[in-house]
Write a protein that binds this DNA or RNA. Structure first.
Lengths: 345, 345
DNA sequence: TTGAAAGCGCTAACAT
DNA sequence: ATGTTAGCGCTTTCAA
């Protein structure tokens, strides 16, 4: 046992300083701004750090520097994989800069989200990542009052005053509708996630509706079903669509989970996809390839959004000026679940 | 503008104290141990807190109390949904006690995991959640040296010195093998996740092997394929199994993702499941129901593990004594991908 | 390049 | 029941 650190108690910067025969200030500098310290001194400090197994105390650091090196993200849910990839990319980007990611969930509720924002703020996060724009102005006020940088993901930049990193949900959805129509479909239904407080879901519906209108088609109200994002709900919605006497020949789904649910319903009703019914998804999560037939869907730039969010936020935090918003491209992904419309005999 | 808080700077406990005309100690008590404060005083403090929009500074709190109200979890990956449900349950349990969950990933690497443990420790987490037992003793030493409570999930309690909350991977896997054999299968292969450093994967393989041996069958070395947990890898592995001249009639998979991959391979090779080939999964994630045919699999107590981990850890942190480990039940889940062996003509 | 020392905001032991 | 006060471990002027 050495006599520099009292056993039990984790070593402090003072223990390191004593062992390296320097002041605590020098230890701090060696660790944070190595170039401002003489090489020999730095080496000495390093040795002591290693020997003691020293790790800066988080609270002390946060208190003194007013920085936590933590960024918080609030996503609607962890239950399905929709946000996992972006989160993973975000985390990797942050980790490269020694910043930790704190993840919270809002369960698609603006109130819960606001609570989580408070929570993250209380923990002193240096930045926040939010999904979409469906929230009260008060939520933004919280962030702005504290001057905490934040990024909004998944929605197309619509507001020059905020940092938004997303893509054109409406445009991509309209594109899907166009492709569906190109294959001869005229009887087109849609299963969407709940649109309330969900601008992405709303935009996707709007996009499809606009494309149909453009082609002089109209989306029948009863052929637009809103439900929660889950396999079961998607299945149930599709069942309703498919069991009515006159059924659609194509179902455009608001995301891949709903599309997979629709596929389940088709299987159970012995409706062949894509021969008798076309189904499209959105997001391109792994599930889209696991089902049979594989889903024709829209590839969303998950990884790029996550990585870009990390980089922009870090830049904003370090340089103090808000980076520009960015719109990322999506891609229509042809697989097997969308087919040509066949006349029914 | 009131003159109690300087604009820009977030209000401190001192601002609250001044406004409520009490000491900072009383404010602290009002917030942390309300019952030790006179009602009228407490109300006065509350009023000031509200008016000022005061939120305790995290760093100060952590530094003074040596507590962060944060628990860290290190999971192998967020990419698939395997750990999502347990995490969600854990988070809900913790949230009910005003404790925040910090999530980190190790990408199935013990070294990365150890790095993350250091990281969490440096951030002063009050407790840690780990998956499985595949790690170096040094990792445990880190935790124990700091006296930080930790729980190990997903593995069956094997060590009376540690808090483990899991289930019998080997037993459940053996049970699957027995059921498969009961349906007449004798040519049984297995696709497993990488077993190195992964005790769950290893236990599942061991369980199956033991059950086969029990029935005087033997697992051919070439019929046990190890690969990463991904759709693609599962598909590739199954392809190898199915394209050899003499192929198995049943494939037991180490988890649902691999099983879904195997199903894809079967589809592509036009091998009917379960008529010509049986496939089983493990974990019962949502994916298991989304594929066709739906996977016969093992239901794992995701939610209960997560919730129990939260409760046990909280108890340990607050009372100072390590709770007992627990073994949770699993359940064989009959769906569609396991069928009776048919003689090939 | 380095050191001395003043806090950062909060809690808890002790005093009243 | 409440106040006084001494730190908790670190960063950051300011001096040397």
């Amino acid at each position: 046992m050495n006599n520099f650190s009292l056993k039990g108690r984790p070593p402090t910067i003072e223990d390191v300083a004593r062992m390296a025969r320097v002041s605590t200030a020098t230890v701090s500098r060696s660790l944070n701004t190595p170039h401002r310290v003489r090489e020999a001194t730095r080496l000495e400090v390093e040795k002591a750090v290693l020997k003691l197994g020293y790790t800066p105390n988080f609270g002390g650091q946060a208190l003194a520097s007013n920085r936590t090196n933590t960024i918080g993200a609030i996503i609607p849910t962890m239950d399905n994989a929709i946000f996992a990839t972006a989160l993973q990319a975000l985390q990797e980007t942050l980790a490269a800069h020694n910043v930790t990611l704190l993840v919270a969930t809002s369960r698609y509720s603006p109130d819960e989200e606001e609570g989580q924002i408070r929570n993250l703020l209380a923990r002193g996060v240096d930045g926040v990542v939010l999904i979409g724009t469906g929230r009260a102005p008060s939520a933004y006020k919280l962030l702005e009052a504290r001057g905490v940088p934040f990024a909004i993901l998944w929605s197309i930049p619509s507001d020059t005053e905020r940092l938004m990193i997303g893509f054109d949900n409406a445009g991509a959805a309209a594109d899907v509708a166009v492709r569906v129509m190109e294959r001869g479909h005229r009887r087109i239904a849609m299963i969407s996630g709940l649109m309330q407080n969900n601008d992405r879901a709303t935009a996707r519906v709007d996009g499809v509706a606009a494309a149909l209108r453009e082609a002089d088609l109209e989306m029948r109200p009863s052929w637009l079903i809103e439900c929660r994002y889950s396999l079961n709900h998607g299945e149930r919605a599709a069942r309703r669509l498919l069991q009515s006497s006159s059924r659609p020949t194509a179902i455009i789904c608001g995301n891949d989970v709903l599309a997979a649910g629709a596929l389940m319903a088709a299987h159970e009703l012995s409706i062949a996809v894509p021969e008798e019914l076309s189904i499209t998804g959105f997001d391109d999560i792994e599930l889209a390839r696991a089902v049979f037939p594989q889903l024709t869907t829209v590839r969303v730039p998950h990884r790029r959004m996550g990585a870009a969010a990390g980089e922009c936020l870090l830049r904003w935090i370090n340089e103090g000026t808000r980076p520009k918003s960015m719109t990322l491209p999506t891609q229509f992904l042809e697989r097997q679940s969308l087919g040509y419309m066949r006349p029914r005999e």
